[in-house]
C-alpha cells in the first residue's frame, strides 16, 4: 500500500519519494547506494518525529480522518481470535455503518460494537461513511442487552463523523435511538470499555460511548461537532475550521486534561496507519488490562462508579 500524505506531511512525502526513487535505481544499477538510502531514511524518521512532535489540533483532526486510518474491523481482525458478526435491529433493517458481534479477545468472550467506515467509494456508499441511522443504534442496543443478559463485557469502537442527518433517519427517530442508547448504557449491568479509534463525532459517537473506561488513540478526536460544522455556525465560514479545532479542545491530550478520558494509547510514529500491526497490539494490551481491572469489580460497585463519573462531568461555579 502506498502511503497517502497530508499537506503538513509534504516534506516527509518528498523525502520518501526520493528514497523510493533511489531504491528503484539501486536495483537497476551496479553502484551501491544502500548507505545513501539509509541516511535518507534516518532523515525521514527525524523529520517525521519533529513534525509529529508539535501537531496542531487541526492536523490531528486530519489524521483522525486519514483515508488510510485503520477502522474497527481492521483492529478486530488483528486483536480477536474469533469474531462472529450479528445483524439487524429486529424492527427495520441492518445498518452496515455499525458492526456488532461476539468475539474472543485473549481467551475471553466479549461483545463488540463499532462504527465502520469504508475503504473506497463503493464500501463507503454501503457503510454510509460510518454515519449510522436509527437502525444502527438499535442494533447496537440489542447487542448491549445481549451482553448484559449473558454477562459479556462490552467493547465499543468509536469512529464516525456523526449520526446521519437524513430524512429517513429523522422519520425513524434518530434522536430517540441515540437517547435510548445513552440511557441503556448508563445502567447496563456489564463492564463497558469505549475506545475512540478515529473520529468521535458528536451524539452519533456518544451513542455507543457511555462507558466505565474511555480510551483514546493518540490522534483520535472527540467533539460536539466537526471543526467544519462548528466554524460554519459560529464563524459563518467553514474556512475557519482550523480555528474551531483549536477552540473546541477535541484532541486526546486536551480530553485527558479535562478528565473526560482515562487513557491515551500512543500511536506509532506517523500515525496508526503507518503501523497497523503495532497499533492493534498496543490497543489489545490496554484493552486486556482494563478488562482485567473492571472484571475484578463487583457489578453494583461498577454501576455506582459509572453513575458518579457521569454526574461529575461539567465545569460550573456553585455559589452555595
Amino acid at each position: 500500500m502506498n502511503l497517502t500524505f497530508l499537506d503538513f506531511e509534504q516534506p516527509i512525502a518528498e523525502l520518501e519519494a526520493k528514497i523510493e526513487e533511489l531504491r528503484l535505481l539501486s536495483s537497476e544499477s551496479a553502484i551501491d547506494i544502500t548507505e545513501e538510502i539509509q541516511r535518507l531514511q534516518a532523515r525521514s524518521k527525524d523529520l517525521t518525529e519533529s513534525v509529529f512532535a508539535s501537531l496542531t489540533p487541526w492536523q490531528i483532526s486530519r489524521l483522525a480522518r486519514h483515508p488510510q486510518r485503520p477502522y474497527t474491523l481492521d483492529y478486530v481482525k488483528r486483536m480477536c481470535t474469533e469474531f462472529h458478526e450479528l445483524h439487524g435491529d429486529r424492527a427495520f433493517g441492518d445498518d452496515p455503518a455499525i458492526v456488532c458481534g461476539l468475539a474472543q479477545l485473549d481467551g475471553r468472550a466479549v461483545a463488540l460494537i463499532g462504527h465502520q467506515k469504508g475503504r473506497n467509494t463503493q464500501e463507503n456508499l454501503q457503510r454510509n461513511f460510518a454515519m449510522p441511522r436509527p437502525e444502527g443504534y438499535r442494533k447496537a442496543m440489542r447487542l448491549m442487552h445481549l451482553a448484559e443478559k449473558f454477562g459479556l463485557p462490552l467493547l465499543t469502537f468509536i469512529d464516525t463523523p456523526g449520526a446521519f442527518p437524513g430524512i429517513d433517519a429523522e422519520e425513524r427517530g434518530q434522536s430517540e435511538a441515540i437517547a435510548r442508547n445513552l440511557l441503556v448504557m448508563a445502567g447496563l449491568r456489564t463492564p463497558i470499555i469505549a475506545t475512540v479509534i478515529g473520529e468521535g463525532g458528536s451524539g452519533g459517537a456518544l451513542a455507543i460511548g457511555v462507558a466505565d473506561r474511555v480510551l483514546m488513540l493518540e490522534y483520535g478526536t472527540y467533539s460536539v461537532i466537526s471543526p467544519e460544522g462548528c466554524a460554519s455556525i459560529l464563524w459563518k465560514s467553514s474556512d475557519m475550521a482550523e480555528k474551531a479545532a483549536e477552540a473546541m479542545g477535541m484532541t486526546s491530550k486536551r480530553l485527558l486534561e479535562l478528565g473526560l478520558i482515562d487513557e491515551i494509547i500512543p500511536e506509532p510514529l506517523g500515525g496508526a496507519h503507518r503501523g497497523i500491526e503495532e497499533m492493534a497490539a498496543r490497543l489489545k494490551t490496554v484493552l486486556i488490562d482494563q478488562l482485567t481491572a473492571l472484571s475484578a469489580l463487583d457489578l453494583d460497585a461498577l454501576l455506582g462508579k459509572r453513575y458518579d463519573r457521569l454526574m461529575a462531568i461539567g465545569h460550573v461555579k456553585d455559589g452555595k
Binding site: 441515540i178 437517547a179 445513552l182 440511557l183 448504557m185 448508563a186 445502567g187 458528536s202 451524539g203 456518544l206 460511548g209 457511555v210 472527540y222 467533539s223 460536539v224 461537532i225 462548528c230 455556525i233 459560529l234 477552540a247 473546541m248 479542545g249 477535541m250 480530553l255 479535562l258 473526560l260 459509572r306 453513575y307 457521569l310 454526574m311 462531568i313 461539567g314 465545569h315
Partner: peptide, 26 residues
Amino acid sequence: GARMQEGVLSLMQMAKTSAARSRLRE
C-alpha cells in the same frame, strides 16, 4: 442542542442527563 462553546463537555451532558434519567426509571 449542545453548547459548542463548552466543547466536548457539552456533548457529555447528554450522557449525564440520560444517566440521571435512568435513576428515575429505576
